[in-house]
Design a protein around this nucleic acid. Structure first.
Length: 887
RNA sequence: GGGCGCGUAGUUCAGUUGGCUAGAACGCACGGAUCACACCCGUGAGGUCACAGGUUCGAGUCCUGUCGCGCCCACCA
């Protein structure tokens, strides 16, 4: 502590320190993990944000938490790897770039450019806009190992993706098949089930008559079957009408033919168990090519598949005139119109139902029959068990249920996408031949599958493909780098619960399949950031603040701390910019506390040694510091970041600033001030890296605070329970005295006197007169165990905690000298206090009068109640006496 | 239809295995340029713990039910 104190500015200005320190940390390589280190490993892989994304509040939350974990572990002596990176985000990026290119008039559809040219544009876009988010994370203070930054389309990473594909293909887990898939007509690609979000929409249920044909194939004028549908446009592709085989109403009709309206086509009436006779009319139109349930029925009954809606969402030629070429929604109206004109529409009723929407483009999904690649998930039972038995722990735990429920009902994953941006499927065709391998097969005429893989098919390998993993497909033996050996399995994963299926579950399966080990030990699920009225933050709503603006206004530390303070484990966060003010104010408070200490040192110079004896305030603050260290450590161990933040806030602002620094103005102990501040800086560093480093350096700390050991509670010499309760009582007198001043509207500048009636700790109080005088702004403070407050002098009766006999109604009396006391105010105050006391006493009396309580409750509880009763009685008596004197 | 979570001060949240007068922060009211800090200091007001039963000597806390809000899963046309 030899550095000369420098002038510290009055208000903390984050701009002056944040950039400076971040550059310093990078230059010194503090974030770079060393695989050869002998320290224990701690690792965490960052959920890779979309490469073209910009920082959102969600990222701020997520990455602040990861940074807190990483920084604390560094202080605890771990070799930390926090691996950052970005995701190519196939469909998202492609959609964005397509939109931009259309806007620029470069193309109408990507086919205009062709695959190669289009991809050039995407890469260009990626170079230009990619990685912005990482610059933003640096502003936030994130201590990622940027030397190991990865991108899911890096050469090495891509190789891993293809190796895994080939391997799973060889294992027979990947297969190709013509299936009904979720089709997005805007992106013109298949989607996985997880990319479809169900939405309740107010639609209609149209009841349509299908004429029954007689033996000669002629429609009966009055004989109809009535089907109910929410999608009349699909009737153009109907191949049957189905009824339940046990439905008595339609027994006779099974096997007969109907005339499909608008198409004048004969379709059969079939019987199938899938039909619920109680719903609607009990007759279902069957559209094999455009409905999942119908598709399955068609397979059972050998029906043909007529495709009437094309991949672009428009009606095909099969739909027939005048519908061909219409958009599916236009076709719906046109069909309804024609049916109405033909008198075949029986009725239309409003109907609420669920419709699947594309997560990305927000249009209704079309069930679409096409050739796609599918994956039978590996390691499903094992992945379920390990989360269930806690080998992989979820925080909050309840997400395990969601996870296992999904795994138990898991279905094959459609991994092919009809996009260009992504990893092209490593399969080649030549006639009937098919080849799957890392490179194109030798020989002429091979055509590679044009599809790419689902983005998540690359990100599910993230925990190891980023660390130098490689699979020798021929020998089926993974190669492990030193990094992998040191840092896999990773320790913690921090992510949102919205990607528990997309990402977390799949990483677990991939980890077991390819590493033979879990990918991470703990998964912390953050809440979702919402606005003050609970809406999700979104660009379109305009309710999501730009984190960079917030950093500029409140400082990165202020933003981080403010956010952590309101982020309870597992609950959504209602974010209000005001929260950042709390963080910023707290940083400023800390700044000024440090400034105070600096000034103390300057005042005393090197000559003024600290008192060697610790006084009661020193002991008390050290006691509270121990509590804080323990509480913060435990909260962080349990991933309760808001509790840790709250604990720090209360200790710093309350115990340290409000009481200890105030006491220090009477008799400072620089050593203790330094020690407590030092510990505060260490505890706070994971939350607020910049200010703590700045103050650490500014107060003469050695090296970087990042590598200073995490504090632990220590034995305090001279510390007893009695000291703590004595000091608590002392503080109670201060509060009570201030109450009197405030009640009686005594000008803060007016010096008044106080007389304290002590019971058993007179000597201690006498030693604290200077302290009392200062905090009460008093001219004089007297301690007198015989003092009886005279009538009219404002007095607060205090039930003392200080040991000794339970005869302890102490008091503090204010003597205002010549000033006038408002007797009414005083009477009111006493009356209120008396009422409170009596209320409590009544409750206590009732309890003790209850024989059941006395005999059944724990003896400690009973004794406590008795002590309380005694105290309250004395207190009541004192107050009554005072009050009587005022009548 | 199934599953999960949440209802505590104006607001956002704490509230351990049931047991001192249900706490905090922000906001609000009043007072204050006191020599760390007005991004501050001091004092205060504000709650039938969603509702109804039950268990218990004792319930914000445990159990059952009801209502309200949110999320996830599910192919009833």
């Amino acid at each position: 502590m030899s550095t000369a104190p420098t002038e510290i500015p009055k208000a903390y200005d984050p701009k002056l320190v944040e950039e400076k320190w971040y550059a310093d940390w990078l230059a010194k390589g503090h974030f770079t993990a060393n695989a050869a280190s002998t320290k224990p490993a701690y690792s965490i892989v960052q959920p890779p944000p979309n490469v073209t994304g910009v920082l959102t509040m969600g990222h701020v939350l997520n990455n602040s938490i990861q940074d807190i974990l990483a920084r604390r572990k560094r202080m605890q002596g771990y070799e930390v790897l926090w691996l950052p990176g970005t995701d190519h985000a196939g469909i998202a990026t492609q959609t964005v770039v397509e939109k931009a290119l259309r806007k620029q008039g470069v193309m109408k559809h990507r086919d205009d450019l062709g695959r190669e040219k289009f991809l050039e544009n995407v890469w260009e876009w990626k170079e230009k806009h990619g990685g912005i988010i990482n610059q933003q994370l640096k502003k936030l203070g994130c201590s990622c190992d940027w030397t190991r930054e990865r991108f899911t389309m890096d050469e090495a990473y891509s190789r891993c993706v293809l190796q895994v594909f080939v391997d799973l293909y060889q294992k027979g887990l990947i297969y190709r098949g013509k299936r009904m898939v979720n089709w997005c007509p805007v992106s013109r690609t298949a989607l996985s089930d997880e990319e479809v979000i169900m939405r309740t929409v107010a639609g209609s249920l149209w009841h349509i008559r299908y004429p029954v044909l007689d033996a000669k194939g002629q429609p009966h004028p009055k004989d109809f079957m009535v089907v109910a549908t929410t999608r009349p446009e699909t009737m153009l592709g109907d191949e049957a009408v189905a009824v339940n085989p046990s439905d008595a109403r339609y027994q006779k009709l099974i096997g007969k033919k109907l005339l499909l309206p608008l198409k004048n086509k004969q379709i059969p009436v079939i019987a199938d168990e899938a039909v619920d006779p109680k719903f609607g009319t009990g007759c279902v139109k069957v559209t094999p090519a455009h409905d999942v349930a119908d598709y399955e029925m068609a397979l059972r009954h050998n029906l043909p598949f007529t495709v009437v809606i094309g991949p672009d969402g428009k009606m095909t030629e099969e739909a027939g005139e005048p519908f061909t070429g219409l958009d599916r929604m236009e076709a719906r109206e046109a069909v309804v119109k024609e049916l109405t004109e033909d008198g075949l529409l029986l009725k239309t009723e409003p109907y609420e139902h669920n419709v699947g929407y594309s997560e990305r483009t927000d249009v209704p999904i079309e069930p679409y029959l096409s050739e796609q690649w599918f994956l039978k998930y590996p390691q499903v039972p094992h992945s379920t068990e390990t989360v269930e038995n806690g080998e992989i722990k979820f925080y909050p735990e309840r997400w395990t249920k969601t996870y296992t429920h999904w795994l138990r009902g898991i279905r094959d994953w459609c991994i092919s996408r009809q996009l260009w941006w992504g990893h092209q499927i490593p399969v080649w065709y030549r006639g009937d031949e098919i080849y799957c391998g890392l490179e194109a097969p030798k020989g002429e005429g091979w055509q590679q599958d044009p599809d790419v893989l689902d983005t998540w098919f690359s990100s599910w390998l993230w925990p190891f493909a980023t660390m130098g993993w490689s699979l020798d497909v021929a020998r089926d033996r993974p190669e492990k780098s030193d990094v992998l050996k040191k840092f896999y399995p990773t320790t913690d994963l921090v992510t949102g619960p919205d990607i528990i299926f997309f990402w977390v579950a799949r990483m677990i399966m991939a980890g077991y399949e390819y590493m033979g080990e879990k990918p991470f030990g703990n998964v912390y699920f953050t809440g979702i950031i919402r606005d003050t009225i609970g809406r999700k933050m979104s660009k379109s709503l305009g309710n999501s603040p730009d984190p960079l603006d917030l950093i500029a206004k409140y400082g990165a530390d202020g933003l981080r701390f403010g956010l952590m303070l309101i982020a309870p484990q597992g609950q959504d966060i209602l974010f209000d910019e005001k929260r950042c003010e709390v963080g910023r104010n707290f940083m400023n408070k800390l700044w000024n506390a440090a400034r105070f200490i600096q000034m103390q040192k300057a005042n005393r110079g090197s000559a003024g040694a600290s008192p060697s004896q610790h006084n009661a305030h020193d002991l008390k603050v050290q006691f509270e510091m121990n509590q804080a260290i323990a509480a913060v450590s435990q909260a962080l161990d349990e991933y309760k970041f808001n509790e840790a933040a709250k604990e720090l806030y209360d200790f710093v602002w309350g115990d340290f600033c409000d009481w200890y620094i105030e006491a220090s103005k009477v008799s400072p102990n620089i050593e203790v001030l330094d020690e407590v501040l030092g510990n505060i800086l260490r505890l706070l560093h994971p939350f607020a890296p910049f200010i703590t480093e700045e103050l650490w350096a500014g107060t003469g700390g050695a090296g970087t605070i990042q590598l200073v050991p995490w504090p632990t509670p220590r034995e305090i010499e001279g510390m007893t329970d009695k000291v703590v309760s004595q000091v608590n009582d002392l503080y109670d007198f201060v509060t009570a005295g201030r109450q009197l001043r405030s009640d009686q509207r005594i000008d803060p500048k007016a010096k008044v006197a106080f007389i304290i009636k002590a019971v058993s700790n007179e000597e201690f109080l006498r030693s604290e007169i200077a302290f009392l005088k200062r905090l009460l702004n008093a001219e004089d403070v007297k301690i007198d165990h015989n003092y009886e407050p005279p009538p009219g002098k404002p007095t607060v009766v205090i039930a003392s905690e200080i040991g000794g006999p339970v005869s302890s109604a102490t008091s503090i009396t204010m003597d205002v000298g010549d000033l006038v006391v408002n007797i009414d105010t005083e009477r009111q105050r006493l009356a209120k206090q008396l009422a409170d006391t009596e209320k409590q006493l009544a409750a206590t009396d009732a309890k003790l009068a209850n024989e059941n309580f006395v005999s059944k409750a724990a003896p400690v509880a009973v004794q406590r109640e008795r002590d309380k009763q005694q105290q309250l009685r004395e207190q009541r008596e004192k107050i009554q006496t005072l009050l009587r004197a005022l009548q």
